[in-house]
């Protein structure tokens, strides 16, 4: 039994099955991220305070560039396959994979940075952010929190750029705050505030998509590429479909980056 139109296009729609399938899947993905973005909008509208430039913008920008590049290499990989240039296909897809891995590595560094960054909300409502001048263990048990507050220009592009490569130098004052003056404190994990909750949830789901994309693309770079010998057009279709997913994930990032890093 053969299922029709797996490789060739159906004449009246002009499409092969998997292309309809992937676009339907992407339509549902639009709604999935739509649900998350609508939550972001709804919560942000209701928020009394929303942090600005709290994430490392240079790192985010770098990751944006990585994903944009991977989009181009992805389409080039498919294009090479269409023109039956197999070695080019492997090369471009290899770069795409590299970009995906690079993106995830940078992302995990960003996550780790956040886990070492702390915020304190005083009973007065004032918020102090910075790094602990004590271990986490000590902080939990002590009655006083010792914290090196972030400098005023912590949101500046250049400051953030420098902080990637070196710890901020110079003497820093350490604030000592008794816990009874504190309403709420924690490191920058999802529960710290609504902003970080949306940040971790949205980028986390996005990262899972990247991971899924990498698995699929890795398969077509490795064992899946064997199909080239028997049916190169079928492989091209599969790569196109996987590529559409990859582009979509990049597209989501194009919106995630300004919403979470810049606004």
């Amino acid at each position: 039994m053969e299922i029709p139109y797996t490789v060739t296009a159906r004449p009246d729609t002009g499409l092969y099955n998997a292309k309809v399938g992937i676009w339907l899947f992407l339509a549902s993905e639009v709604m999935l991220f739509g649900g998350l973005f609508s939550a972001y909008i709804f919560l942000r509208l209701g928020a009394t305070h929303w942090p600005h430039h709290i994430l490392n913008v240079p790192m985010g920008l770098f990751n944006t560039m990585v994903l944009i590049s991977s989009s181009i290499t992805m389409v080039m990989a498919w294009s090479s396959l269409k023109m039956r240039q197999f070695s080019n296909y492997r090369k471009w897809l290899g770069i795409t994979l590299f970009c995906g891995v690079l993106f995830l590595s940078v992302k995990s560094v960003e996550y780790k940075d956040k886990f070492h960054h702390y915020g304190i909300i005083l009973n007065s409502g004032q918020e102090i952010t910075g790094h602990l001048a004590m271990t986490e263990e000590e902080a939990i048990h002590s009655d006083v929190l010792k914290i090196k507050p972030d400098p005023e220009n912590a949101g500046d592009f250049l400051f953030q750029l420098k902080s990637i490569f070196s710890k901020p130098e110079g003497e820093e004052k350490v604030l000592e705050i008794p816990k009874k003056e504190i309403r709420w404190w924690s490191n920058f994990v999802p529960k710290y505030n609504t902003y970080l909750a949306t940040y971790f949830t949205m980028t986390g789901i996005h990262a899972l998509h990247i991971l899924g994309g990498l698995l699929v693309l890795g398969y077509f770079w490795g064992p899946g590429a064997a199909l080239y010998r028997t049916n190169p057009e079928h492989l091209a279709n599969r790569v196109e479909v996987a590529g559409l997913f990859w582009h979509f994930v990049d597209l989501v990032w194009i919106f995630l980056f300004p919403t979470l890093y810049l606004f």
């Binding site: 999935l32 739509g34 939550a39 994990v189 529960k191 909750a197 949830t201 789901i205």
Partner: peptide, 25 residues
């Protein structure tokens, strides 16, 4: 199903975040 279910899936993920990681969605 295709278009209406995904927002609930994202809501379910957010409720899981609330329950497992203490967020306040």
């Amino acid at each position: 199903l295709l278009l209406a279910f995904p927002p609930l899936e994202s809501a379910a993920i957010m409720q899981l975040m609330d329950r497992l990681f203490g967020t306040s969605f």
